[in-house]
């Protein structure tokens, strides 16, 4: 029965969030049931909305990892947004610099590597600060976001600015040959495959590898980890590095699959939404896939809400915020529900 708890508590939290959101919608003068229905239609109602959802889900899968992996060693990192920006920056620099120099396949590969390396190191620095200097990782990763965004804005307005971009400052394009295309005839880019691959690989690492086991020991009780002689510092930094690398890939996708160039649009909030995905998924990489689809769907339905209910498209962000609060509040329920009682076992 205990196995049901991690499933039922988030589900109950989702239901509560929807009810609260319904109150909000009703206060705004709309029928909550109709709004729920529109969210469903906008997210999963047709092939068209599915494609919208999938496009939004893939970066969420990657950015969620930036919170989920450090969480396994006991760190609460909210620096996904910064890693996205840094990854986008690295990918754009590589793409622009090597455009036409190498074959597109090589350029894409190098963009990917650069994004992973820079995003990874960015968040690894947070882990190192925490382990060696005792700096609170939540605060430092949040501040790292601001630093990354400031660097992005500086470069886009300054040195990297394409003189041809008038209204919205942006860099020169990385070249259409170096773009990651769409899957078959759909409007879903190949980034979805990157996201799925990352979730599955990291799930294997977490559940099946000795490294994942060691990380769980550190997250569960650092004293026991030291007793067993585990290299705690190295593993903490490695978890941050892997998480940051995944978020860096999300940034690369923004450049190489969506915008084709660097602009302030790469800072679209996927890093923050990824925190929510990770918490909803209980930091389990496999559970991140359905949760990212759910959240991606909610975000995709914003447009439809605006069109058919005249609700501002930020309404879905309200729903997202409500879900986050309720999920955080529900964390205290683990181990206290009737499901977690096993008579005759504990004294």
């Amino acid at each position: 029965m205990r196995l049901l708890e991690p499933l039922l508590i988030p589900l109950a939290a989702l239901v509560v969030s929807l009810l609260l959101f319904g109150v909000f919608v009703a206060l705004a003068g709309h029928n909550p049931l109709q709004v729920y229905h529109s969210i469903y239609r906008g997210a999963f109602g047709s092939w068209f909305s599915w494609q919208n959802t999938l496009v939004r889900a893939s970066p969420l899968m990657l950015t969620a990892m930036c919170t989920a992996l450090p969480a396994r060693v006991g760190l609460i990192v909210i620096g996904g947004e910064g890693a996205v920006v840094v990854g986008a920056l690295a990918a754009a620099l590589v793409g622009i610099g090597l455009n036409g120099v190498f074959a597109p396949v090589a350029v894409i590969g190098l963009m990917l590597l650069a994004a992973m390396a820079c995003g990874g190191l960015w968040v690894a620095a947070v882990g190192a600060l925490r382990h060696y200097r005792g700096v609170n990782e939540t605060i430092s990763s949040l501040l790292f976001n601001y630093i990354a965004i400031a660097i992005l804005n500086f470069l886009v307005i300054g040195p990297l600015r394409d003189p041809a971009s008038l209204n919205k400052p942006a860099s020169v394009p990385i070249g259409s040959d170096n773009m990651i295309g769409n899957i078959a005839e759909s409007s879903v880019h190949w980034g979805l495959a990157y996201g799925l691959l990352a979730c599955l690989t990291l799930w294997l690492v977490v559940r099946r590898s000795t490294m994942g086991f060691a990380m769980d020991v550190i997250g569960g009780n650092p004293r026991a980890a030291y007793l067993a002689g585990l290299p705690v510092g190295r593993l903490v930094i490695l978890a941050c590095l892997l998480g940051g690398a995944a978020a860096g890939v999300a940034g690369m996708l923004e450049v190489a699959a969506v915008h084709g160039r660097l602009s302030s649009s790469v800072n679209a909030g996927y890093g923050y939404a990824g925190i929510l995905v990770a918490f909803l998924a209980r930091h389990n990489p496999l559970a991140i896939i359905p949760v990212a689809l759910l959240l991606g769907g909610i975000r995709a339905s914003g447009g439809l809400l605006q069109r058919s209910h005249d609700l501002p498209d930020a309404t879905v962000l309200v729903l997202q915020g409500i879900i986050f609060l309720v999920i955080l509040a529900s964390e205290s329920l683990y181990g206290r529900t009737p499901l977690s009682q096993r008579p005759g076992v504990t004294r």
């Binding site: 099946r208 590898s209 000795t210 569960g220 026991a224």
Partner: peptide
């Protein structure tokens, strides 16, 4: 001081040996 309360008895018993054969295979899989 010596256990991870949330992990199972089996996992706690493996704390010293989990990264060695036969508990680990092919360079790092449990």
């Amino acid at each position: 001081n010596a256990c991870v309360p949330g992990m199972t008895i089996a996992e706690n018993l493996a704390l010293r040996e989990f990264d060695r054969a036969p508990y680990a295979r092919c360079g790092g899989w449990l």
